[in-house]
């Protein structure tokens, strides 16, 4: 049974991530008094890309070809590690804790950056350099955020963190936890190219950050790249909701019905986080590129203050 749930969890992430992105795009458009594309548009895009032929530059190397597959494999791996539909570790969850998950996500980003540099296009290398700069600032903050929840649960295993907070709801309003949660939200927005770091609907090459890495991909490769980035956003949002904000409603790993209940709960939680992202997307302006350092510095600072207060205020 746990193996079935394991497969269900990964399939759920695969299936729901285009919908999540579609809902955010549509909701943001509505908030800005536009009509916007249908929430199913990402699925249609995926079908279109999967049916198109692949065009690659003749100067592009093998790394460029392999990168989307490596990245997709990484995202699929992370989808087996983190708590999404059950609050008990599934058979493959032994592979990593939150730091391990972050490592695998970083590996995916690394592969995409290498692929971009191998794409024989100057924009690819430019995008890779920008993303690497962003990542070098975001990564330390991310590790500190894991420490803030680690302080509360005395562990860096997301399942134990989930139990620690679900078991004592008062922990939700502890300063350490609140600061960590806000810092994590800032990092999710930065890592997935949302306002105020990047505009997900932006089409100007000069302002793109993550998108400029993947300009050279087409057809099937592009479908994998986009699907992978949507999965990353969904996975991080799931961790945000299940570990930081609402650690309840996860099923136990005993029966399929529990897994389905957990899936429904996760869909509801993702709707909440989508509403949050939409609000932020439509109420802030995109930052100037070099002010992003201050933004990420702010996330780092919040997490650091969170850890200091954990010593001062206690847990």
């Amino acid at each position: 049974m746990p193996y079935l749930l394991q497969v269900l969890q990964t399939l759920l992430v695969l299936a729901i991530s285009p919908l999540y992105v579609g809902v955010i795009a549509r909701g943001t458009a509505i908030l800005q008094s536009k009509h916007g594309p249908s929430v199913l548009q990402p699925y249609r895009d995926l079908r279109k890309w999967l049916h198109k032929g692949v065009v690659r530059s003749e100067h592009a190397g093998p790394v460029f070809v392999a990168a989307p597959y490596v990245a997709m494999a990484c995202y699929l791996t992370v989808s087996t590690i983190v708590p999404i539909i059950t609050d008990e570790p599934l058979p493959l969850a032994f592979m990593g804790d939150l730091l391990g998950g972050a490592l695998v996500l970083a590996l995916a980003g690394f592969a995409m950056s290498l692929g971009a540099m191998d794409s024989a296009s100057p924009l690819g290398a430019l995008g890779a350099s920008r993303t690497a700069w962003l990542g070098s600032l975001a990564e330390p903050a991310l590790i500190l955020v894991f420490f803030t929840v680690g302080v509360l649960s005395a562990s860096d295993n997301p399942y134990l963190m989930n139990h620690a907070i679900a078991g004592s709801p008062a922990a939700l309003i502890l300063p350490t936890h609140l600061l960590g949660a806000v810092a994590f939200l800032l990092l999710i927005l930065a890592e997935n190219g949302h306002i105020p770091v990047d505009n997900p609907a932006g089409t100007t090459e000069i302002a793109m950050i993550e998108e400029s890495r993947v300009l050279e991909y087409s057809g099937r490769d592009y479908a994998l790249v986009k699907w992978g980035s949507w999965m990353k956003f969904t996975l991080l949002s799931c961790v945000f909701m299940n570990v930081f904000v609402l650690p309840w409603g996860l099923g136990s790993a005993t029966s399929l019905a529990q897994g389905l209940l957990g899936s429904a709960a996760v869909a509801g939680k993702l709707a909440l986080s989508a509403a949050l992202v939409m609000t932020i997307d439509s109420s802030f302006a995109k930052l100037r590129f070099f002010r992003i350092a201050e933004y990420l510095g702010g996330a780092f600072l919040l997490a650091l203050i969170g850890i200091i207060t954990s010593y001062v205020v206690g847990r």
């Binding site: 309003i173 300063p175 201050e294 702010g298 600072l301 205020v313």
Partner: peptide
């Protein structure tokens, strides 16, 4: 003590005051 509800509110409030000082500094 910190465990009491009043203590929890006060300590959370104190941390928010600290954060607003940092925000002003930033």
């Amino acid at each position: 003590t910190l465990a009491s509800p009043g203590g929890a509110v006060l300590s959370l409030d104190a941390v928010l005051i600290l954060l607003s000082a940092l925000a002003c500094l930033g």
